[in-house]
Design a binder for these strands. Structure first.
Lengths: 144, 144
DNA sequence: TTTAATTCGGATAAATTTGTCCGAATTAAA
DNA sequence: TTTAATTCGGACAAATTTATCCGAATTAAA
């Protein structure tokens, strides 16, 4: 469903959000450990999220990544997914047709659009804050 | 969402189903043209579908692929997808956790399961026959 | 000012997916 | 029986995604 890059990006964002709520800035190394991801690859993804204003990054000793507290609730999964995978989740035909729409649909079009819209809605209404609460309570997990 | 292999497999199956309803056996070449796919790659996918009893294949002159008429309605998209991509669409955590379930869920688990179950249900209830009718009427398309 | 911790970012490599090539096997028709 | 059309299936190649490496730039602290 999501690419590996996107999975890492979402997990990292959730972890950073959780720590940011407690005013903690976190390093790449810590993030990769907490979400069980390859360090260097995670660096690239975090970099990309920073460029897209999902995260703030600070260089130098005691540097790392964080999210403005106000943004933890404002940032939705859709923002993270879009920053990494673009609109590939939203656009595009289920059967790979270049030009597939209501006027000239593939055989699966109608059924596919329904599912995709629900995915879209879920991504757009789920904030990073929503996803941190279970983690904090120890009832959801980011690794294993 | 689906892999290219799966997209080609679904489109090919729909086309073969449509022709089979009119007792026409179709060649690899014709299929690849009709669904706008690379011939040799399509061959591999058809071969795989034949091995999994989704299609019948006949070698030699006037050979090709077909689907038993009775099976056109019995075969669901889920069968085609499973023959090509395995259960990857169904199983697996949305965030890539090895062990993600009701007991030890990722933060996205509940929301993800809802979407995936709807996809699953759609694939399991949609038959090849369902997808041929629009094609036959010229209101749905397999290429462009 | 120097040092060390950190992100930045390009080059490269490994793995996977997608796609090509071609000879072997099969089989209907000439 | 020969020929030609076709699928079968393995080897290989290209493209994309995933992952690694390492030096440059930045910056807080010693």
């Amino acid at each position: 469903m999501f690419s590996k890059a996107c999975e890492y990006g979402i997990k990292a964002s959730i972890y950073i959000a959780l720590q940011s709520l407690q005013d903690k800035r976190v390093s790449l190394k810590e993030i990769a450990e907490e979400i069980n991801s390859p360090v260097a690859f995670t660096a690239k993804i975090l970099h990309q999220l920073a460029k897209n204003d999902i995260l703030d990054s600070v260089k130098g000793p005691a540097g790392g990544f964080q999210i403005e507290k106000d943004n933890v609730e404002k940032l939705k999964l859709s923002h993270v997914v879009f920053a990494i995978d673009g609109d590939s989740i939203y656009s595009g035909c289920g059967l790979g047709l270049e030009k597939c729409n209501e006027k000239q649909p593939c055989p699966l079009h109608d059924k596919f659009v329904i599912i995709r819209n629900e995915l879209k809605q879920m991504l757009e209404e789920t904030s990073l804050l929503d996803l941190t609460s279970g983690l904090d309570l120890g009832i959801t997990f980011l690794k294993r």
